[in-house]
Amino acid sequence: MKILNVYRSAPDDTTKKLVEIVGRDRDVESFDLAVDAPDYDALVDKIFTADQTICWW
């Protein structure tokens, strides 16, 4: 199972803990939305290839 973690802001300890548990023994990718100019094209490609996308706070 391939999980894509998208971050809207820098993850705090609680989010990090959940990310770690959900991603355990799974194929995990991430994408940082909290930048000046996110590469939306690359993000959509990642969303389309992931089995599940989780967009954290």
């Binding site: 809207r8 939305l33 996110p38 939306y40 094209d41 959509v44 490609d45 389309f48």
Partner: peptide, 12 residues
Amino acid sequence: HVMGITKAAKAK
């Protein structure tokens, strides 16, 4: 981000 992602997805 809603706009950016929507535009990128529509382009595909």
